[in-house]
């Protein structure tokens, strides 16, 4: 059985076990809906007061928000093992158990958790995307759909990669959750708006170090018909790969860190 199949089977089983507590599950999903709804409301309120942001119309802003929301929370649903579960895997010694099995560690960590509650947040994101694409009068083409799929796929990898930083710190038992939060959750908060509104240092940060701009904004702007910085259309299909590159780099660092992993207990 290959890795993808194993992952899918694990997800299926974990979903099943979460649904053993249906009331609690529903309550929490509802809470997520309200929470992400609140985030979106902030954008609506901003639009209410300011009408537009540089060249970006309200519809454009909803679209950017939706792209980030869908990407970030898809990552949280399917990558929960990395985005939330890793510190407790180390603390409880569960990571040892994973090391005793003949599979890759990242695979197994990914197989260890799922967070279906976040589907509510994804729903808010999808609503924002639909609203945004309508108001921006986007003419959908195969190319644009492709650019969007690619952006979301690499965006998920990018976010997973950023959360791997936390895992790496965790292996070296450095307590740094708040520091890593700055780049993960901070990146999400910042890059739900197009990157060109930020001053140069922040722009560079989100283009090079945590390339949300390359992965999400360039294709989004292409879809909206207002290419970021006037870049040619083909960049929208190439630049998202930056997310994949970042993931790969951090994956290698993570593998290196695992060699220094020192399990807890005597």
């Amino acid at each position: 059985m290959n890795t993808v199949k194993l992952y899918l089977r694990s997800m299926q089983m974990l979903m099943k076990s979460q649904l053993q507590y249906p009331v609690s599950f529903l309550m929490q999903t509802l809470a997520q809906l309200v929470m992400e709804g609140g985030e979106f409301m902030a954008v609506l309120l901003i639009v209410d007061r300011f009408d537009h942001l540089n060249q970006w119309t309200p519809g454009n802003l909803y679209f950017f928000f939706g792209m980030m929301s869908v990407t970030f929370y898809l990552t949280e649903i399917f990558g929960r093992g990395i985005t939330g579960n890793f510190p407790s895997l180390v603390r409880t010694g569960q990571l040892d158990t994973l090391l005793l099995r003949p599979r890759g560690i990242v695979t197994q960590v990914l197989c260890s958790a799922v967070d279906p509650r976040r589907v509510a947040c994804v729903a808010v994101g999808v609503a924002a995307l639909i609203l945004g694409s309508r108001q921006s009068a986007v003419q959908w083409t195969t190319g644009k759909a492709l650019a969007m799929a690619e952006a979301i796929l690499f965006g998920v990898l990018l976010i997973l990669g950023l959360f791997l930083i936390e895992a790496i710190f965790c292996i070296h038992s450095v307590k740094s959750i708040e520091l890593v939060n700055a780049i993960t959750y901070g990146g999400r908060s910042a890059c739900q708006y197009p990157v060109d509104i930020f001053p140069r240092p922040l722009r560079l940060l989100f283009t090079i170090a945590a390339p949300f701009a390359l992965t999400l904004h360039v294709p989004s702007a292409y879809i909206l018909g207002k290419p970021l910085y006037g870049w040619p259309a083909w960049t929208a299909f190439v630049s998202p790969a930056a997310g994949g590159v970042l993931f790969l780099m951090l994956y290698l660092l993570f593998a290196r860190a695992m060699r220094y992993y020192r399990s807890t207990g005597s």
């Binding site: 007061r49 300011f50 537009h52 942001l53 540089n54 700055a182 908060s189 509104i197 930020f198 922040l202």
Partner: peptide, 17 residues
């Protein structure tokens, strides 16, 4: 970091209106 992001955002918004 969060503060700088928010301030940048509001400055951009103010620049427009």
């Amino acid at each position: 970091f969060f503060g700088l992001i928010l301030v940048s955002l509001y400055r951009a918004l103010y620049a427009g209106k």
